[in-house]
Amino acid sequence: MQRRGTLASATAGAAVALLVAGSAAAHSARPAGHPHPGTLTSQDIATAGTGSPHYRIPALTRTTKGTLLAAYDARPTLGDLPANIGVVLRRSTDGGTTWQPQQVIRKEAAPKGFGDPSLLVDRETGRVFVFYAASVNHGFFGSATGNDERDPNVLQADYSYSDDDGLTWKRRRITAEIKNPAWAGMFASSGEGIQLRRGAYKGRLIQQYAIRHGAATYAVSAYSDDHGATWRTGRPVGPGGDENKTVELSDGRVMLNNRRAPYRTVAYSSDGGVTYTPFEQDKELPDPANNGSITRFAPDVRATHPRARWLLFSNTATTDSRSNRTDRLS
């Protein structure tokens, strides 16, 4: 949980900002004050000192009903876990034009802390997951080995889930299911997980994690083929893993994109995220070792459609500083 940075909070917790692009579908019956289709607007949905001293690590998704959910850390300081951090959320039912009041997904008394949210929507059931790490005594680099779900020295793997579009939440701990006891620290990579749309593993839910094994760090996929009833992890890829994201390619493979300096590293899976090829540098994607994001532009189109091959990628495109926020289309 160290060295954490995000695209939307590069100003060290000053605000969590959201960009909202108007669309004809979202604004076909546009009330007064809504942006015109194609207009890019921005707003702060969480500001340091209002409700919490600091906010960091935003995640964003759209539910099956079209509701936007933005989850992020509410932090007493800018420090990572272990700290008395809480995971909070805001909802928008009008495409991001207005946002409902901030709600708490998970917060408990010190020294407990919960942080680095990653959202994942099961588009077959409508269930929304938000994965995060749970600490008492230690964060990623101090966590003990083992997967005892009651051990305060083990950084735990928790998630909350909602079956009513993010209005109410229940929670679950899956450390014993997904953490190899030989691993030390393990945390969900913040941002958004994926669900495979086609092929042999259609319907599979995949959430990325970073793990520490010995002195090295790796990336690994946690996956579920039964809508989250049970979870497993595949084979770690690395060393050199950190915050990482996956995206489903039009040919059915899963591509993993990993935080690394001076360039992002990538790996590929042909078995739905269970095993990956070794990391390779992508020299078209300079990176200062910061979080990033990758997604399909049109995830629902058929595999033969030209836009099935379009990918969107965002990061701070430099090799030595968290600056030059850049969005790319492949």
Rank of each mutant, 00 (worst) to 15 (best):
W99N: 10
Q195K: 07
A109P: 01
G126F: 12
A188P: 15
K179C: 06
G113P: 01
R173E: 11
V154W: 05
P152Y: 09
M186Q: 12
I194F: 10
E149C: 00
Q103N: 08
G95N: 04
D80S: 07
P111C: 04
G166R: 03
D116R: 00
I85W: 02
G86Y: 09
T168M: 08
P152T: 06
G185Q: 12
R197Y: 05
A70Q: 09
D122Y: 03
V130S: 08
G199I: 10
F129V: 05
G191E: 11
D151P: 02
P101G: 11
D164A: 09
T145D: 08
T97H: 09
N147R: 07
D148V: 00
R75D: 01
R171A: 14
G86L: 11
T97N: 12
G139F: 01
A157R: 08
R173Q: 12
D94Y: 02
A110N: 06
A83T: 00
R91F: 02
G113K: 00
M186H: 03
G126S: 10
D165M: 13
T175L: 11
K170W: 07
R91I: 00
G203Q: 06
L155F: 03
Y161E: 07
W99E: 12
L81P: 09
A184R: 09
A134K: 08
T168C: 08
K170V: 01
W169N: 13
S118N: 09
G203I: 08
G193P: 11
F114T: 00
N153F: 05
D151R: 03
L69T: 14
D73P: 06
E192K: 14
E177D: 15
N84V: 00
N137Q: 13
A144H: 09
L155T: 04
Q195A: 10
D165P: 12
F129E: 01
A83F: 01
G191C: 12
I85G: 03
L167N: 14
D94F: 05
K179L: 03
I178C: 10
V130G: 10
L69M: 11
N153M: 04
R90S: 07
F129W: 05
T175N: 11
Y72E: 08
A200N: 10
G126N: 11
Q195G: 11
G146D: 12
G142H: 05
S118F: 04
R106K: 15
T175G: 13
G126D: 11
D151N: 15
A110W: 04
Y201L: 03
L120R: 06
V87M: 13
G115H: 01
R172K: 13
G203D: 06
N180Q: 04
R173S: 03
L155H: 05
V88I: 14
K112P: 00
V121G: 09
P111W: 07
S190K: 05
T97I: 15
A144M: 00
T93Q: 11
R171S: 15
N137C: 00
P76N: 12
D122V: 01
G203N: 07
K202G: 06
A71T: 14
K170I: 00
L81E: 11
G126Y: 10
F187S: 08
S118Q: 14
I85R: 01
L167D: 08
D148L: 02
I194W: 05
G113Q: 03
G113I: 02
P181D: 03
